[in-house]
Design a binder for these strands. Structure first.
Lengths: 331, 331
DNA sequence: ATCTCTTGAGAGAGCGCTCTCTTAGTCACC
DNA sequence: GGTGACTAAGAGAGCGCTCTCTCAAGAGAT
């Protein structure tokens, strides 16, 4: 007992397969009564078009790959940024009747797998999420002549449309806030320097310090809570007198707050802390975190729009979304 | 300039399409020299099999749908449980060369979409994640005669293999820990009662209280941080004398800790708090959270195995994984 | 030397659909 | 009434692949 085919529908409705196909695809050149007969047959048989057959001839799959180059170290599971972006992209694509195929890339082996999969024509386009600098995927995919867009500016200069937030401007605003509130020794916990977000946020920090004759005090983390805690301890050793720290993401800021607490420093009295991302958890830290909000869902939605533009020939210029300083209690 | 077909490979290697196909699919009945010639042709042309054509004839897609019935209210983005399960399932499936198609269900409209998609033969099987009691999907899918497994026991009695953790036993262990440490007035913040995890964890709480002549004090949340904060405030109003609270998940526990702090209660001195899930953030709360760990990744892996068994005729009995009490500082 | 058996390779049908081409039919207009 | 324009429906090719069936060639048995 297999699934009914278009042939069966046509037979039941007493028309040709071509006409049945026209009805299924919503063409208007079918007489109303015939149309109704076909629809009735579809309903009675519970017909659903076979997608493989359809894409074989149309050369489209209506599926989009969402490739997440995850940094491996549990960031994917912990950083709500990923799920928020995935969710938003998924909802946006759903609205235009496209399906999301999620691919997580971790090992070089899965790299090859992703490439093969995409080369195999499973998907009409690719959305790339958060790759590291050395990620070979952007160039590999653009070589395959598959439509590709990126969430975040690609690290290598490759001609892929992308959406990013204003990392530099956001970091500048955060550090400026610390300067303006009279902090003298402002350290930073930077993100991984093989990621654009890590680089740009550090650049923003440096820009402001340079203009305000303070010296920079830098520790580097990898965007995980744990690395934030470690980096904070190191900063306190390097400069026990520091009175502020700009942390490149909220997850690391949570770790930093814990280290500060353990070191007996009060926040914000002794040390002011500014994070980046404004994840939900930032409202629930002790004290609640001052941080930079950027619209993750909008960014994902803009990325989807970019991809659709790529299909339909619309504008594909890079999109940069603004950040906003959210002042809570930590600074 | 389209992608090379098997025909092209065969022509270049000077063999028939059938032989080329045999090589591509790793059949052994091909002479070594011919085999090499075909492989060379594949390499030179950059041939990748067209998946639509292949599944049209094989009736397989090697894709599995991961359907997440999300509760809508941002839980998906915030609760690391989802990402952890998704990630684990994805890795496990990758190992057996299957692809994950992620489908988020929120509106009733997307319900229909998911059903159509699955009925359309896009996937070979379905994994269901976290559905509410009223979720019509389990029965709808099992009616489609598509292999389905569930992450978490389905709320309706439907014959679907599933993997769950021992919610009742875990809750009992958590509450027993509070009883044994001498707490007298033990409240609970329960999860949504249309979810099995919510029901079972509340049942575990009640089981232990019943056996220890304490009365139960219940507030209900929806597994979000915010709802945990609200529920905690309500509990403090209902019974200002309470000295412990068992919270049905860590996210709500984080909210509860904040409310306790705002109400001037010390944890664990005045009020002991036990959570459930042992998410990464539980280590970083103030104070660190005592909670019940259950192996989310293993649960997802077990679900994948169950699905593969469904394909290959292996055992498909429900799997229940144990929980473990992790004692930190909050209780 | 003939026959059977095995092995390796080709021929070709067909998976379910779309879409172009063709044809039949209707209507309008001179 | 004949011609042309247009509409609605059918015929059939073909998307790229797998897989059964068939066949040729060589090995081994009689």
């Amino acid at each position: 007992m297999r699934r009914p085919t278009l042939e069966a529908v046509a037979a039941r409705a007493g028309v040709s397969r071509a006409t049945a196909s026209r009805v299924v695809n919503g063409q208007t050149t079918v007489a109303p009564d015939i149309r109704d007969a076909v629809l009735r047959a579809i309903d009675e048989l519970g017909y659903v078009p076979n997608s493989a057959a359809r894409s074989l001839v149309t050369q489209r799959t209506d599926s989009i790959a969402l490739v997440v180059s995850e940094p491996g170290n549990r960031v994917f599971s912990e950083d709500p940024m990923f799920s928020t972006a995935i969710r938003s992209a998924s909802v946006e694509l759903e609205a235009v009747n496209k399906q999301v195929v999620l691919m997580l890339v971790s090992s070089p082996k899965s790299h090859a797998r992703v490439e093969r999969y995409i080369a195999g024509g499973h998907v009409d386009g690719v959305m790339l999420l958060s790759m590291h600098g050395a990620d070979p995927l952007p160039s590999a995919l653009s070589r395959l002549r598959v439509p590709v867009v990126s969430y975040g500016r690609p690290a290598v200069p490759v001609d892929i449309p992308y959406v990013d937030n204003d990392n530099v401007g956001g970091a500048e605003a955060g550090v400026r806030h610390l300067v303006e509130s009279g902090r003298r020794r402002i350290a930073t916990i930077a993100g991984p320097q093989d990621m654009i977000a890590g680089q740009d946020r550090l650049a923003g920090y440096r820009n402001v310090l340079r203009d305000s004759d303070r010296r920079s005090i830098v520790a580097v983390g990898d965007f995980t809570r744990e690395s934030g805690a470690v980096a904070m301890r190191q900063l306190l050793r390097d400069d026990p007198e520091l009175d502020a720290v700009f942390v490149a993401n909220d997850l690391m800021a949570v770790g930093a707050l814990q280290s500060l607490r353990q070191a007996g420093r009060r926040v914000p009295d002794d040390v002011a802390v500014v994070g980046f991302d404004d994840i939900e958890a930032a409202k629930y830290t002790e004290p609640p975190l001052t941080t930079l909000r950027h619209p993750i869902a909008e960014q994902a939605a803009a990325m989807v729009r970019l991809l659709l533009n790529l299909f339909e020939g619309g504008p594909t210029d890079p999109v940069i979304l603004p950040t906003e300083l959210v002042i809570r209690e930590s600074a």
